[in-house]
């Protein structure tokens, strides 16, 4: 998406975000568990995970809204509060954060005044598709319009890093589409974008890199294609009493092997090769091959069921 600013070309500049052994506890609950993460300038990254996975807690610490229980957050090598004061980082929050008795244009003007230098109000309103509702009171705007207003406000300091926390929560299909097309146009400018979502399809469609978070830990981190590959495997089940677990696990394309008494479950990316091996080289019988599907992978990785995965399953599973 933003190939012009591939991480390799920016080795000298500090990473946009660096999380070191980052932990956040609320009483006895650990929301974030010793996360290490490095996001380079120009990357578009999705934090994918169910509600309560620790995405918002992490974003709050990156913005300096809350302090880590342990560990460290660096934003462009700086303390988060310093980065915020310099307008290097801004954010689109989930809900709230708007005054109902200001108009759209006044809200943008107000926020713009707070920065040392800000982009012109008209420019950010146009980029967020708000020009036609500029004189409308915020309280009379739709949810989608309010969210695009938050986006316009976030654009004002021309931030190098833009954080979006569940940006399309509660929007209708049209609202989500126009919101993401605005974000996508903006990402082409080379801005680092990190968004939290629990919509698999959003992570897949808009992120170069997907970081899967579950219960405060990173459970997977890779390109969207790699994460999809995690999800596109199949399971071969067979009755095979004397199975050599290690030998099966060593077969090409095998992720892992479960042995339950006489039956084995082999999770793999190339089910044909595994089946051929089992039938020709071993005593295994009663073979069953099932597709794992994106939904199952998401459940396995994040421990929740995704609304969107059902839509994608049809496209991915044969």
């Amino acid at each position: 998406m933003s190939s012009a600013t591939s991480p390799g070309s920016l080795k000298t500049s500090p990473p946009a975000i660096e999380l070191i052994e980052l932990r956040k506890s609320f009483g006895t609950v650990q929301a974030v568990r010793d996360i290490n993460l490095r996001i380079e300038s120009g990357e578009v990254v999705a934090f994918l995970g169910p509600n309560g996975a620790g995405k918002t807690s992490t974003i709050d610490m990156v913005l300096g809204l809350s302090v880590p229980t342990r560990g460290e957050v660096r934003v462009f090598g700086r303390d988060p509060l310093d980065a915020v004061r310099r307008g290097l980082v801004s954010a689109v929050m989930q809900t709230g954060g708007l005054l109902k008795d200001l108009t759209v244009a006044e809200t943008v003007a107000y926020t713009g005044l707070l920065f040392e230098s800000a982009r012109p109000a008209n420019e950010v309103m146009e980029r967020a598709g708000l020009t036609s509702v500029a004189d409308r009171l915020v309280g009379k705007c739709s949810g989608g319009e309010q969210q695009r207003l938050r986006f316009a406000m976030a654009l004002l300091p021309d931030p190098q890093l833009l954080l979006l926390d569940e940006p399309t929560q509660g929007m209708d299909v049209e609202g989500r589409r126009s919101f993401w097309s605005a974000i996508r146009r903006d990402a082409d400018a080379g801005r680092t974008i990190v968004f939290a979502t629990h919509y698999l399809e959003e992570a897949d469609a808009y992120a170069d890199r997907v970081v899967l978070i579950r219960e405060g830990e990173i459970v997977a981190d890779g390109t969207a294609a790699e994460v999809k590959a995690l999800a596109s495997g199949r399971t071969v089940r067979a009755t095979y009493p004397d199975a050599n677990e290690a030998a099966l696990a060593a077969l090409p394309g095998v992720d892992h092997v479960d042995v339950h008494g006489p039956s084995v479950m082999i999770h793999c990316s190339d089910s044909d090769a595994v089946a051929r091996h089992l039938l020709t080289h071993t005593t295994a019988r009663d073979l069953e091959i099932t597709a794992r599907g994106l939904e199952d992978a998401f459940v396995a990785l994040t421990g929740t069921r995704s609304r969107s995965a059902n839509d994608e399953r049809e496209a991915i599973t044969p």
Binding site: L88, E116, D158, R191
Partner: peptide, 25 residues
């Protein structure tokens, strides 16, 4: 990077005087 926004990649931006207090606000 041929976007209307010239995202500068150096971090040497200042911050506003008076903590952001302005009469326009």
């Amino acid at each position: 990077m041929s976007a209307p926004f010239a995202t500068s990649l150096n971090g040497d931006r200042g911050f506003p005087r008076w903590g952001g207090f302005k009469f326009a606000v």
